[in-house]
Design a protein around this nucleic acid. Structure first.
Length: 433
RNA sequence: GGAGAGAUGGCUGAGCGGUUUAAAGCACACGCCUGGAAAGCGUGAGUGGGCUUAUACCCCACCAUGGGUUCGAAUCCCAUUCUCUCCGCCA
């Protein structure tokens, strides 16, 4: 959520930054300002009436205490219709506030100054490239074929269980998945200073609203219903990312400045409806309804936000470096950034069988956008309550990492070499059919 | 799912229609006292919003949440949520 004071005081600046996203959100600023002004006008009116009611009620109390009942009755008549007028104005003010907030919840974050202008992924500058595309003496196969031949994934039976877009990892496939999760959690907790948490995989809608997934993108996620009780539908949602529960851990709290920075990492499965995405990259496990991910979250002081983002990016890159994978880092342009983010880097890993880069990590600084939505604050040394910066980054997403790993380490004989840093976890140097 | 108890500021905890402007204690900040500290004494201090150049005044709201009764609700009524104890079911 943007700061209403900023919108009031610098509406042109806000419009200009929203326009940079190219989604037309700047058109709503006038509506926000109108409902905000109406709300304040109504508040001034109703609060004056409440002050009056309070004063008279106190006088009535005093008269009752002195047993002057007749005078008290007279006073009661005086305030007779005050209650109704207050109730009416209260309702109007609440409606104006609600209208303003509904609009505000649908406004995305303002892009940071350092974000390049652009309209699509084609405009994202490459920040750096790590390593080189591996060369093969043979034509590298797709992970789909490798998973079939090495029996890492059973696509047909996954579809039998859950329909398309789901993965049944089998035998070494399941063990690789687990090894990767364990490897990443160990790296981030032991070497990068994150505290591991294991959150619920279902959360209430306020958590999705807190990080900016609701209300605008409510059609993207799985709502849960308990048994056959339709009344429970929408009380809980399957998490689309660990960011949803973990970033919300301290919602509505006032932290001490000395508690910052907070670093969390979490493994969770992620569930995404991907409405409207049918047919797009659906072959294999590149785009699926359920995938695993190790997520990094930081809660930091505003002045530390952008330095923390660079560190998080480095933390995520380290995963790919240790696995010996070729990747590049891109900086998302204004038109390609997510709703809540002020600045986002993507890490794209090379998948030789696909002949393309796959997004495995997205590292965002949401500044105070999410903190405002979830009312998360910290008390500064000087005693004022401030909104911290919230950062999230994948460290990294599985499925696509699995694809890159399998396609990169495939051998001429159809077997799979295990990268050195994964061998202690898999207790194997090579996997064959 | 059944029965009972409960939810008050950072924490503990009183208040159960109108001198409550939410007592008191702990913790916190500042001051006095002291050689320094402790103790003692004094003062201050919650959150959000409105008005405002203002972090100054003043005003409004907030005692789990949402409704209701009343001139007036932390207090009475209803619903909901959550916590605890016991029973049932259960990995």
């Amino acid at each position: 959520m943007l700061d209403i004071k900023l919108i009031r005081e610098r509406p042109d600046f806000v419009r200009q930054r929203l326009a940079a996203r190219g989604a037309g959100d700047e058109a709503h600023i006038d509506e926000v300002l109108a409902s905000d002004e109406l709300r304040r006008k109504l508040l001034a009116e109703v609060e004056a009436l409440k002050a009056q009611r309070k004063r008279v009620s106190k006088e009535i109390g005093a008269l009752m205490g002195q047993k002057k009942f007749e005078e008290a009755e007279a006073k009661k008549k005086e305030t007779g219709d005050l209650g109704d007028r207050i109730a009416d104005l209260d309702k109007q003010a609440a409606e104006a506030e609600s209208a303003r907030n509904q609009l505000m919840l649908r406004l995305p974050n303002l892009p940071h100054d350092s974000v390049p202008p652009g309209t699509s992924a084609a405009d994202n500058p490459v920040v750096r490239v790590h390593g080189e595309q591996p060369s093969f003496a043979f034509k590298p196969k797709s992970h789909v074929d490798l998973c079939e031949s090495l029996k890492l994934v059973d696509f047909a039976r996954a579809a039998k269980l859950s329909g398309s877009g789901f993965v049944l990892y089998t035998n070494w496939g399941a063990r690789i998945e687990r090894a990767l999760i364990q490897f990443m959690l160990d790296l981030h907790t032991r070497e990068h200073g994150y505290t591991e948490v294991s959150p619920p995989y279902m959360v209430g809608p306020q958590c999705l609203e807190g990080v900016g997934q609701f209300p605008k993108f409510a059609d993207q996620y799985y709502a849960v219903q308990e048994g056959l009780d339709a009344g429970t539908l929408g009380k809980l949602y399957l998490i689309p990312t660990a960011e949803t529960p973990v970033a919300n851990i301290h919602r509505e709290e006032i932290l001490k400045e000395s508690e910052l920075p907070i670093h969390y990492c979490a493994y969770t499965p992620c569930f995404r409806g991907e409405a409207g995405a049918a047919g797009v990259g659906t072959r294999g496990i590149i785009r699926v309804h359920q995938f695993d991910k190790v997520e990094l979250i930081r809660i930091v002081r505003p002045e530390d936000g952008y330095a923390a983002q660079e560190q998080m990016l480095a933390n995520a890159e380290r995963v790919l470096q240790l696995l010996g994978l070729h990747y590049r880092v891109v900086l998302l342009c204004t038109g390609d950034m997510g709703f809540a983010s002020a600045k986002t880097y993507d890490i794209e890993v090379w998948a030789p069988g696909q002949g393309s880069y796959l997004e495995v990590s997205s590292v965002s600084n949401c500044e105070d956008f999410q903190a405002r939505r979830m009312n998360l604050r910290y008390k500064s040394e000087s005693g004022e309550n401030r909104f911290p910066h919230l950062l999230n980054g994948s460290g990294t997403a599985l499925a696509r990492l699995f694809v890159a790993l399998v396609e990169t380490y495939q051998q001429a004989d159809g077997s799979l070499a295990v990268p050195a840093n994964l061998q202690p976890y898999l207790k194997a140097e090579r996997i064959q059919a």
